[in-house]
Design a protein around this nucleic acid. Structure first.
Lengths: 113, 113
DNA sequence: TTCTCTTGTTCCGAATCCATGAACTACTAG
DNA sequence: CTAGTAGTTCATGGATTCGGAACAAGAGAA
């Protein structure tokens, strides 16, 4: 049982369906929103504090893998931590306006209850 | 074994995660794109002709149920057919710009291969 | 009516996906 | 070396999904 190296897709090979699938889970969407608002990279603990849902860490780790493999986030190991950031600019080039409108939709949704 | 009545969610109770999940499947996304381009309601056969994928009809029927229950499409039975249309205007009110940017992203993606 | 064709639905088994606890890696600090 | 922290991997049970077969339901013909 050894830790696999992190691998990130090139943005030009990122599929829309994968992006939408990654964002179709409320917890993953919350992670993305937190990374978006933070503007600075966050590790998992920091992110989950902002998200405020008590997810088991194994589940959390899987969510990060889905987000990473979908092309939405870029991760780097910093010692024992995993530093993640949204690939905002790259995504904007590939799918202009997409991320913005999804994050806006999420804000509207959470404002309406 | 009897056919259940069609039920549609009210738009204000439609969840973003459900919409994204519905659109995260390439075939469903293609159905939505076809309905969008058609501008007029289509039945399943007409839609699948435009989509051009030989999906089994049971799978197809499930996809329609997912799209309907997510709030994306409105369906009515016309005799033996199921007439479907995108709930474009309502969705635009609930999640402004969302559908538009997703459909645009899909066009960009299919143009890039 | 009854027969047949068409369109879509439901059921069910198999395959697949997903969530989570337990065990583990890997790094840091003392 | 030991302990602590951050995250990963594995195993497994539960939930979803796919697709073939059977079915429902309406239209049209006789």
């Amino acid at each position: 049982m050894s830790v696999r190296p992190l691998k990130h897709p090139e943005m030009r090979s990122v599929a829309l369906a994968d992006v939408l699938h990654a964002l179709s889970d409320p917890d993953r969407l919350a992670i993305v929103a937190a990374l978006h608002e933070a503007k600075t990279p966050l590790n998992c603990v920091e992110t989950m504090e902002r998200v405020g849902s008590g997810l088991p860490k194994s589940t959390c780790s899987q969510h990060y893998a889905v987000l990473r493999e979908s092309g939405l986030i870029w991760c780097e190991r910093r010692g024992v931590e995993l530093e993640s950031r949204l690939r905002t600019a790259e995504i904007e080039v590939r799918f202009p306006g997409l991320l913005k409108s999804i994050l806006k939709a999420r804000r509207l949704e959470s404002a309406s209850e």
